[in-house]
Amino acid sequence: MGDLIELKNLTKNYDDLQVLKGINLNIKENEFLTLLGPSGCGKTTTLRIIAGFEEPSSGEVLFDGMDISRIPPYKREVNTVFQKYALFPHMNVFDNVAFGLNIKKVDKSVIETKVNRMLNLVGLKGFGPRDVSNLSGGQQQRVAIARALVNEPKVLLLDEPLGALDAKLRKEMQTELKKIQKEVGITFVFVTHDQEEALTMSDTVVVMNEGTIQMIGSPIDVYNEPENRFVAQFIGESNIIEGTMKKDLLVSFDDFDFECLDKGFPENEPVDIVIRPEDLDIVEPEAANLTGLVKSVVFMGVHYEIIVESKYRDYKIHTTDFSPVGKQVGLTLTPDDIHVMWKMGVY
């Protein structure tokens, strides 16, 4: 699988404000790639530069190895699913989906076949003559996807396409989108600020913050091996602890040394350590180095969220075993529960 799109040192300024600060990203063929980050971090801007609606202030956008950053959107082999669908209100479902093919002056009978096949794919068989304004949000969403995919683009860009749907429909569409992507076998670049959505759907997750890329990795890597404090905090819940890397495979925090799996840091390098709440085990105080007092217990549906107050900090623990408030407990962890990260801004 080669690189289909390469973003090289992309920056974007609006007046004095720099909203993209050097984005480097390679997008492979047939990949489901998600841009994930808090509001205002530049996800939409990145997507709009790929689509051609914005010109980068500097840097290159390579498509199949060619620089396309000055090519207008209507000449790019990229199609977009807009956040608010942007269906044409003066056309019915069929004509909306057929729009791109009509522009290309494709044969009427071919258009008919392709549009109907696409409507089948998105589960809107027989909806052709319907007025788009009478469709539900989920149906409009499907029309928007069909309208983009019927042009057989090499890349489909989706800007928070599920943002306007209710929770249940959202889940359904997540599964469906993933299925469609597998079926048509093209690259999807998906934008969301919902980490769960990003982790369940993607092959690759790109975590962004304030116009920079914080981490690129598989969902599992992004969750289990966050590269820095921002990623750890943004994805899932975590205990983030300052410590020192004594040497390879040995890290020290809260007065104790712990074995870990990380190496390659200089000796005695100050680092951040992530421990996911579900990785900490509560044991009798004698059986552990870390000890503390149960400060609060909240039932979360499947598990308890227990806060244990220790000498230096409060630890958050997710467990199915109940411990009463006020109990003295110990906390244990195995080497693979400890994730050591460089301090922010070091690399």
């Binding site: 207008p72 959107p73 209507y74 269906l87 522009i103």
Partner: peptide, 8 residues
Amino acid sequence: EAAMDLGA
């Protein structure tokens, strides 16, 4: 933008 995106 949608129209441009679709090749118009």
